[in-house]
Write a protein that binds this DNA or RNA. Structure first.
Length: 832
RNA sequence: GCCGAGGUGGCGGAAUGGCAGACGCAGCGGACUCAAAAUCCGCCGUGGGCGACCACGUGGGGGUUCGAGUCCCCCCCUCGGCACCA
């Protein structure tokens, strides 16, 4: 007989909700814990990845609540974005309706999972009472110069019809949402000055000890700090100069050419001065290079293209002239868009000169060797060495040469040392309707004018019609666009771009703290109490997206004085859950290997689904979906149910007094007592310290196995059995809350397991009264003996050596050495 | 190329330098049943032996150690990130 999860689960979901037992308030005596999950985008229904995310979160929240923490565990919806607009076009339905309907559906799914959220704190980012504060943050940033508009080459996704931030161009240069290759377009767009925080974003990573190493590495890579020298080279016979950046200023004497990015602004100036024929060639080259997408650019890996401009740059250190080329491997958006070419010590430059027949001057030699002969070089030497052909700097080791030549440049006023980052400012404009309006108007007289705080929120016009071609519906909302300038009262037009949805998700965790606050984004006293988030659970895919943006926002919020000045990081603990895979591939519609959470919950119940997900693998590894494994989890719950159900009346009447170890005779009773408490001990450590939920479940299965073979025969044994069953239910309840509540009630308890105290470990019961000690001969396992614990090395050695079986193992051979590890083993090393 | 994670039975996965394979899945055998399902009991790394046992075994090769899945060096493979980043 299978237990009636279909009746049990809704029963407890209803009771929990009605009792408000998961509501939390700021303050109190208990220690606080903020357990946060990456909130979902409501694109229809939850998938298995969500189920995993929220099973882990709910387990954590329930466990800590039972352990005496005041646990903030909220949920909400990241509800602006493209899918709503796509649905609007496809299904002729308003994005708002589509979104809000989905939110209702997904809310029902969360409830059917048994998640212990404080539902009063629900946040929906597409509602004005939320996005009003995103606009408010924008205005604060604008005041501080952190939000600005500039004309720049930006990433454009043709399919989404909008620009994208650098972080949203992924893989081989495709759109993060739709996978379309991204192209560059020169447009005027809004940016947030995240690069102002580059150094701090990088530095603070060292303090995030609760983050997985791989996420830290990914962010370090992404921010990409490098130290070098920025300097100018005059272009001979012109009044122009080229600015270059290098991390290897020690190789300055090895410059044999200079290369510019095709998009470099100086190219046009040079072109104007070129003879007609060359000008046409150069401009044609530039056109060809700059029209390529990232994919095309990386496709011809290695093979470099270039064209000589006919101009020469003058090396500031010795006045030598180097030809100025335009090369396809120079990127406009890194450094200065121009480089000094040192083929002897940079492989890319080396490849370039070999193709175009330019010179090579080695200026670094290996220690103890002479400078290489340029004609015999087959590759650039980029390793550190000793400076040569470098005038007064000859003989200096590379790091010293970098230091000295850097100082020399600064003292001569040729350039300055500086730090470069790969991180770019965050492009936040989106040419989309379904997003937060940017609170700015354009006035003929006053120019760009930020709206006053009192006019917030700038609400999205509801009656917009999404054009079938996927364009921005706001462009057609003439009544909305036309407005008056808050400064001069004259006619003005609203900004029709909306904000990147990653703005919404950059501060939602603060809104949960004070969801109803209407005088500021959140109440500072709530943030003082709850922040930072103690554990944040979500997918690794946000390592260089949301997780960088939210860190940046938090630093800005701190600088604005809304949270204490030392609160610089939002998330102290991070758990990146692994993917859910089936048949060796990530679940996806196109592969047809998707398993619908609703169907699993309907067929086996939420408790089974949660148990399987938490048991099948450690949370940060990928999870192999197995229908058979789900059945196994279900089987286990059925067994637990039967065990309690079959002896419910005896359990109810059993005395609920902890049976002490002393009162039990040696044998099954003591063994069970020990099992109960070692299980509590291990499960607690597995959840709290290791976050190894799979092994915690295994331990609980072992406890169940121990309980089923125990046959209580007297009053004490029934009390012990009750202690065991209750411990099992208490420890299992964060994994499978419904069935545990049901059985808890069946045993005659009238409190909620959800708010019960986690069982404590009887340390007396952990002490073993005998241990298995193994005998090794030359490190190989030979015999096993039962002895009392706590024997000293000497006692143990003597005891084991006296065993007849041990004596015969040794025979007459010479004993070289005996190693004894108390309570574990004796290893006898024999000669020959 | 650089950085990170990983490689353990048929499968998912366990193992503070000390009994490799916990727990589960699958499989095999048995009980119950007219039968099946469900349930319960037993077996379950490979090779050898009737057997108690023996040998081998954690991607490959070396090393440290009384003892290595675990520590060190070299190599191979898988996954993930970054990548003409100057």
């Amino acid at each position: 007989m299978a237990y009636e999860f279909g009746a049990i689960e809704p029963k407890w979901q209803k009771r929990w909700e009605e009792s408000g037992c998961f509501h939390v308030e700021t303050g109190g005596d208990r220690p606080k814990f903020y357990c946060l999950e990456m909130f979902p985008y409501p694109s229809g229904a939850l998938h298995m990845g969500h189920l995993r995310n929220y099973s882990i979160g709910d387990l954590t929240a329930r466990f800590l609540r039972m352990n005496g923490y005041n646990v903030l565990y909220p949920i909400g919806f990241d509800s602006f974005g493209m899918p709503a607009e796509n649905a609007a076009i496809k299904m002729k339905i308003h994005p708002a309706k589509w979104t809000l309907d989905n939110i209702d559906h997904v809310t029902g799914q969360f409830k059917s999972m048994g998640c212990s959220y404080d539902w009063r704190r629900m946040v929906k980012t597409c509602l004005p009472d939320y996005y009003r504060w995103s606009q408010w943050f924008f205005l604060r940033m604008y005041e501080r110069g952190l939000a600005y508009k500039k004309h720049a080459p930006v990433n454009w996704c043709d399919s989404c019809g909008t620009v994208l931030a650098n972080e949203q161009v992924i893989g081989e240069g495709v759109c993060w949402r739709c996978g379309t290759p991204v192209v560059k377009r020169a447009l005027e767009q809004w940016f947030l000055r995240i690069t102002d925080y580059a150094e701090e974003l990088l530095e603070n990573l060292d303090n995030l000890s609760g983050w997985p190493e791989r996420v830290l590495t990914m962010q370090r890579n992404w921010i990409g700090r490098s130290e070098g020298v920025r300097f100018d080279m005059r272009i001979a016979d012109t009044d122009l100069s080229i600015e270059a950046f290098t991390t290897r200023i020690d190789t300055i004497f090895g410059v044999t050419f200079v290369a510019l990015a095709a998009e470099h602004p100086i190219v046009e100036r040079l072109a104007e001065m070129m003879p007609r024929g060359r000008r046409d060639e150069v401009l044609e080259f530039v056109r060809r290079i700059s029209s390529r997408s990232a994919i095309e650019r990386t496709a011809n890996d290695g093979d470099k293209m270039g064209i000589d401009t006919g101009f020469e740059a003058i090396n500031p250190v010795n006045g030598t002239r180097a030809p100025v080329w335009i090369a396809d491997y120079i990127l406009m958006d890194y450094g200065t868009g121009a480089i000094m070419g040192v083929p002897a010590h940079d492989q890319r430059d080396f490849d370039f000169v070999r193709k175009f027949g330019l010179g090579i001057i080695p200026v670094v030699r290996a220690e103890g060797e002479t400078a290489p002969n340029p004609d015999e070089m087959t590759a650039a030497i980029d390793a550190d060495g000793i400076a040569c052909n470098s005038g007064e700097f000859d003989g200096l080791p590379t790091p010293v040469a970098i230091e000295k030549i850097g100082e020399w440049f600064e003292s001569n006023g040729w350039g300055r040392r500086e730090t470069q980052y790969r991180l770019r400012d965050w492009l936040i404009s989106r040419q989309r309707y379904w997003g937060t309006p940017i609170p700015v108007v354009y006035c003929d007289r006053c120019g760009t004018v930020p709206l006053p705080e009192s006019s917030l929120p700038v609400e999205l016009p509801f009656d917009a019609r999404i054009p079938d071609n996927g364009g921005n519906a706001l462009l057609d909302c003439e009544d909305w666009v036309r407005t008056t300038c808050p400064r001069c009262g004259g006619p003005a037009r609203r900004e029709t771009d909306t904000m990147d949805t990653f703005i919404c998700s950059s501060w939602y965790f603060l809104r949960y703290l004070s969801p109803a606050c209407d005088s500021s984004p959140f109440r500072p006293e709530d943030a003082d109490y709850w922040m930072p988030v103690d554990l944040y659970i979500g997918g690794i895919e946000h390592a260089c997206l949301h997780l960088i943006y939210a860190r940046f926002f938090t630093k800005v919020v701190s600088d604005l004085g809304l949270v204490p000045s030392d609160m610089r990081e939002p998330f102290t603990g991070l758990l990146t859950q692994g993917m859910v895979v089936k048949d060796g591939a990530k679940m996806s519609k196109s592969l047809g290997n998707v398993v619908d959470p609703d169907e699993i919950i309907k067929k086996y119940g939420a408790d089974t689904a949660r148990l399987f997900i938490l048991f099948a693998s450690p949370p940060d590894k990928s999870l192999d979906w197995s229908d058979k494994g789900v059945e196994g989890a279900n089987r286990f719950l059925n067994r637990v149910y039967r065990m309690v159900d079959e002896s419910a009346s005896e359990l109810r009447s059993a005395k609920r007094a902890a049976v002490s170890m002393d009162s039990l005779p040696a044998g099954p009773g003591k063994d069970l007592k020990r099992l109960i408490h070692s299980t509590i001990d291990r499960v607690t450590k597995d959840i709290k310290d290791e976050r190894q939920f799979n092994t915690a479940v295994a331990r609980l299965m072992e406890l169940y196995n121990g309980l089923t073979v125990f046959n209580p025969g007297n009053e004490i044994e029934w009390s012990l059995f009750r202690e065991g069953v209750e411990s099992l239910l208490l420890c299992l309840s964060p994994f499978c809350p419904h069935i545990c509540e049901e059985l808890w009630e069946a045993m005659g308890n009238d409190d909620y397991l959800a708010t019960a105290r986690w069982p404590s470990v009887d340390t007396e019961a952990l002490k073993a009264d005998r241990v298995t000690v193994v005998l090794q001969i030359n490190g190989k396992l030979r015999e096993q003996y039962e002895v009392e614990p706590g024997l000293s090395k000497e006692e143990l050695t003597k005891r084991i050596m006296d065993q007849p079986s041990a004596k015969s193992r040794v025979g007459g051979k010479e004993i070289v050495k005996v190693i004894a590890v108390p309570d574990r083993l004796v290893n006898i090393v024999l000669r020959g």
